[in-house]
Nucleic acid binder design. Sequence first.
DNA 1: CATTGTGAAGCGTTTCACAGCC
DNA 2: GGCTGTGAAACGCTTCACAATG
Lengths: 231, 231
Amino acid sequence: MPVERVRRRIPEATVARLPVYLRILVEQANLEVENISSEGLAELAGVNAAKVRKDLSYLGSYGTRGVGYEVAFLVYQIRRELGLTHDWPVVIVGAGNLGQALAGYGGFGERGFPVAGVVDIDPAKLDSVIGGVRVRHIDDLGQIVQSRQVSIGVVATPPAAAQDAADRLVRAGVTSILNFAPVVLGVPHGVSVRKVDLAVELQILSYYEQRRVGVGFHAIGSNDSGRGASA
Amino acid sequence: MPVERVRRRIPEATVARLPVYLRILVEQANLEVENISSEGLAELAGVNAAKVRKDLSYLGSYGTRGVGYEVAFLVYQIRRELGLTHDWPVVIVGAGNLGQALAGYGGFGERGFPVAGVVDIDPAKLDSVIGGVRVRHIDDLGQIVQSRQVSIGVVATPPAAAQDAADRLVRAGVTSILNFAPVVLGVPHGVSVRKVDLAVELQILSYYEQRRVGVGFHAIGSNDSGRGASA
DNA sequence: CATTGTGAAGCGTTTCACAGCC
DNA sequence: GGCTGTGAAACGCTTCACAATG
């Protein structure tokens, strides 16, 4: 067992940006870029350089004054901090339109989140194969979670079934949920939930779109990760 | 022409929550609930009652002390404020896995965002019909945007094509973009962008999941809209 | 001497607490 | 009496500005 050292508490807003930095740094590494300044990374991430420096400072002092940050090293540090040193198998509940698209989308596994299973409550959907995974009955959830050590579940059901899906996931032992259903999930204390809600996103855009009429401007923040309007 | 009255500036964080309140209020209206207190709405939305009151106060003083808020009236006011009094046709760029799922997902149109068109650059994808809409070539974008008065575009392309998609959308006259590609889009000042990035969401969950090991607790915020861990 | 790392100021959001009102 | 509306306090995040430094 490796000894866990004391972990600094990283602000939520920073945690939400680290994945963005990570993606950019990996791209830069592929382009054989060895060093990057806070200024350079900020540009690519669409944020302010001071923010980049502050964010990275939570990981430790890994930059070199006058030079910048070593790309490969930063990639390593961010991966470690985000817990991306190993895979996190996920289980998808709901084999409808969205569940299928998610399971079929290869990017999941590539990025360290292999689909350990797809389950549905509808017998008609069973045994079809999506993205190389056979759809199983929701009653198999516990077994899948146990055997594959799943700790992240994805709710891709219709709204009416979402709370039940979440309850089942929690009962099966899942402690993080990514919710695509337009429903506020109730989960026990200690379970993390993040939601992705298309209608909400569009309605937010609608608000700024409406304001645009007769006004000349608008800047718009976004999902924690600070992307907005930009040039 | 209706006279536009002076519009209060609503904080971004509040704008992101209004769609959630709206959805809940519509549900309550369907359940024939006539009045709701800030406490009640807060419970259903998974937020604090004071926040609900402050949020709603930006719309005006529409509550009744000692009673609460009239559900139907609030629905109307939030709709108006969000610009949901008319439809906002959207155009989807990218007819791959995700683009198809989005176009096929009926919820779009129902919620006031009918799919005015789906375009792709790949000739092989043309003319297939998704969700009742025929896939057209990306060169038709301008024509679609013009004729259908589209101001919101959805980028559902692979990452490498996302910036080009955004550029084309902007050239066609779109002023709001919902981006599903894991890429930071550069857009001219005045164009709103919101992004939905599955990998980022999963990586954020990974962070808290990792922290969980050996610790006993965690609360986790989310996409501007304040859903977190709860009981 | 370019660039990091970081106190301190600034700003937006949340929460408290209570006066105001039905 | 119960619940809203809102100043004011508390909090967290962002940005500034500059000393530290390879």
